[in-house]
Structure formats: structure tokens, C-alpha cells
């Protein structure tokens, strides 16, 4: 399963159960549209950190990283790249 599909699946399952995953637009602003509220954002951050093994120090720096499926996927890819470089 690709990162994007996995992220979509989590969001639909937890925040938009009535939306089929393939109908969730990857650039939809999850925060401004009300799909993910403040407590939902904390849950999303916790899940991304745990699922993709990203340290909280990186993960909680800006909500912009979590505004859409595309943004989250890009954030995960960046974090993984940085982690590779650090090694």
C-alpha cells in the first residue's frame, strides 16, 4: 500500500467514515474544511509519528504539514529522506 493510500485510509476511517477513500481529494484542506479538528490533528500527528517512525520533534512543528493527504505524504517523505541523510 502506498503512503498516500495508507494516509487516506486512516483519515477516512477515523474522520470521514461516509467518504469512499478514492473520493477523498488528496489536496483537500482537511483542517479548514472541518474534516480534522484540533483533537483530530493531535491524533493524526500521533498516528503519523508512530506509523512512519517520525520523531515528535519533527512532527509537531507545523499544522501545515497535516493540511492535506498530499502535504502529509510529502512531510513523511521529507522526514524519511532527512533520516536517511542523518544515518
Amino acid at each position: 500500500m502506498s503512503t498516500e493510500v495508507e494516509i487516506k485510509s486512516f483519515i477516512v476511517r477515523n474522520f470521514a467514515p461516509d467518504v469512499p477513500p478514492d473520493q477523498l481529494e488528496p489536496d483537500l484542506n482537511l483542517l479548514d474544511s472541518g474534516v480534522v479538528d484540533s483533537l483530530g490533528l493531535l491524533r493524526l500527528i500521533a498516528w503519523v509519528g508512530e506509523r512512519f517512525d517520525i520523531a515528535v520533534e519533527e512532527a509537531d512543528i507545523s499544522p501545515d504539514n497535516f493540511r492535506s493527504v498530499d502535504a502529509i505524504a510529502a512531510f513523511v517523505a521529507d522526514a524519511r529522506r532527512n533520516s536517511e541523510v542523518a544515518r
Binding site: 484540533s38 490533528l41 493531535l42 509537531d60 512543528i61 507545523s62 499544522p63 501545515d64
Partner: peptide, 13 residues
Amino acid sequence: IGGEGAGFLVLDH
């Protein structure tokens, strides 16, 4: 302090 719109996560910290 932090980026515009980052206040909720600043506050959470």
C-alpha cells in the same frame, strides 16, 4: 512565535 497558523501546536507544546 512559530509560523502563522502554528499557534495550536505551540500551545499544545
